[in-house]
Write a protein that binds this DNA or RNA. Structure first.
Length: 424
RNA sequence: GGAGAAAUGGCCGAGUGGUCGAAGGCGCACGCCUGGAAAGUGUGUAUACCUCACAAGGGUAUCGAGGGUUCGAAUCCCUCUUUCUCCGCCA
């Protein structure tokens, strides 16, 4: 979330910038500023009263020790009144802080100055494209047909075991999944990321830290009996590794990568691009995460974008990179680049990666801070993450784009991992 | 799942009702010492909030979390969480 300080010092600017995200903030901002005023005056008064109480307690103690019981009892009575007052002030403070927090959490992150205005996907800006769109024979079919033809992905079996959106990968299909995961992880490790295998379920605090809770609760599978959430992305557990931490500036950047399955309820997206691998409830993804010094976070963002581009290129997929407009950006992001690959048989661009700088927005929620050499006060770090990459749509594009009369040709870079060069 | 023990600052560890944000040690930072280093030695070393100039200074809170008793709690009581040991179960 945004810090109070930013809102206090840049009230009008905050309101203006959030309009880029199509968010009308004026009302909330005003309420926040009012509540903060109230909070401070309550705190101030309560502290003074508490100080008085503390002083009196010491006096009472010394009265008792010197046997002046009368004086002590007199003070005790006076004490009771102030105590009542402090108690009610404490309650007021708690409730004010709660209200304040509820409002703060409702404000999205400020978009970076370079973020274009826009309503939705059509207003995103193409910053780069590459790769060649292959020309397929007339008999070319979509990946769901290929999956069936070569018996590598079984959607119906997934239906039987679990439900729609939970496919079963079989034979060379399963091996190919594993190959992609290993390949992506190895590339991340070479690029300096430390591999972690995090839990696939997280608690509420973690969900809050990265911004999934409270707003996007409906997107996650909730294990109510233990109050845990299945992760929608490795971003959640991996970024939360650093929750409540104070790092040293010299430790930056922290670079972590993780492969995890991801679970998404995708509530409300029925019938919309859900065919085949396009949108699943469970899918595999390799994620890269960086915790970085605020002055260097945009360098890291570029580095991450380049890393992802390298992956897509190496798979020979036609791709384009989009800079998301304000209307299409996530709540928590300051700047996001999306990667899309072209899936030829469907004739569709499929989003396979989203690389974002959250600046201090998540860090503020996470209490993820760092100390500058020789400085006393901790400052908020910047967090970034990106998919590198999400598997299903990559797989969809690979299957469709690489189909030949003889079978599906495996890209060179994956062959050491698959052990075969064609699916036939 | 059952029984018992425990949870203190970056770490170890003292502290069973008052002057304890907390002894001592280690670590770390800076200084002295040294040709350099080690040893030695001196000083410093949590976080949030309020006041305030995001300075200095002052105040409040925090000894797993939350509540309670008390004029006063790290210290007593209750609830929860976590860890360890033993038993059961088990990949």
């Amino acid at each position: 979330m945004l810090t109070l300080k930013i809102i206090q010092e840049n009230r009008d600017f905050v309101i203006e910038r959030l309009k880029i995200k199509n968010f009308q903030a004026e009302n909330i901002v005003n309420q926040i500023l009012d509540l903060d005023l109230k909070r401070r005056s309550t705190q101030n008064s309560m502290d003074n009263n508490q100080a008085e109480l503390n002083k009196m307690s010491k006096e009472i103690g010394s009265f008792f020790q010197s046997g002046k019981v009368e004086e002590a009892n007199l003070l005790k009575e006076k004490n009771t009144q102030i105590k009542e007052l402090v108690k009610s002030q404490a309650e007021e403070l708690t409730s004010t802080e709660k209200q304040l927090n509820e409002l703060l959490v409702q404000l999205p992150n400020l978009p970076h100055e370079s973020v274009p205005a826009g309503k939705g996907v059509d207003d995103n800006i193409k910053v780069k494209s590459g790769g060649k769109i292959p020309v397929l024979s007339k008999s070319a079919v979509a990946h769901w047909d290929l999956a069936k033809k070569y018996d590598i992905i079984d959607f119906e079996l997934g239906n039987k075991l679990t439900g729609a959106g939970f496919p079963v990968y079989k034979g060379k299909g399963a091996k190919l999944q594993r190959a992609l995961i290993s390949y992506f992880l190895d590339k991340a490790i070479v690029a300096g990321y430390t591999e972690v295998m995090p839990p696939l379920m997280v608690n509420e605090d973690s969900g809050f830290g990265t911004g999934q809770l409270p707003d996007k609760e409906g997107q996650m599978y909730h294990v109510t009996i233990d109050n845990l959430y299945l992760i929608p992305t490795a971003e959640v557990p991996v970024t939360n590794i650093f929750r409540d931490e104070i790092l040293q500036a010299r430790d930056f950047p922290k670079k972590m990568t993780a492969y995890t399955p991801c679970f998404r309820r995708e509530a409300g997206s029925y019938g919309k691009d859900v065919r085949g691998l396009n949108r699943l409830h469970q899918f595999d993804k390799v994620e890269i995460v960086q915790i970085q010094h605020p002055e260097k976070s945009y360098e890291s963002l570029t580095e991450m974008v380049n890393h992802v581009e390298g992956l897509v290129k190496s798979l020979n997929l036609p791709y384009r990179i989009l800079k998301l407009c304000g209307g299409d950006m996530s709540f928590t992001s300051a700047l996001t680049y999306d990667f899309e690959v072209f899936s030829v048989a469907q004739e569709k661009w499929l989003e396979v990666s989203s690389v974002s700088n959250f600046e201090s927005y998540q860090a503020n929620r996470l209490k993820l801070r760092y100390k500058e050499e020789g400085e006393k006060k901790p400052l908020l770090a910047h967090t970034l993450n990106g998919s590198a990459l999400a598997l299903p749509r990559i797989l969809a594009a690979l299957l469709e784009n690489n189909q030949t009369d003889k079978g599906i040709v495996i890209p060179e870079v994956l062959r050491p991992y698959t052990g075969f060069d064609i699916i036939d």
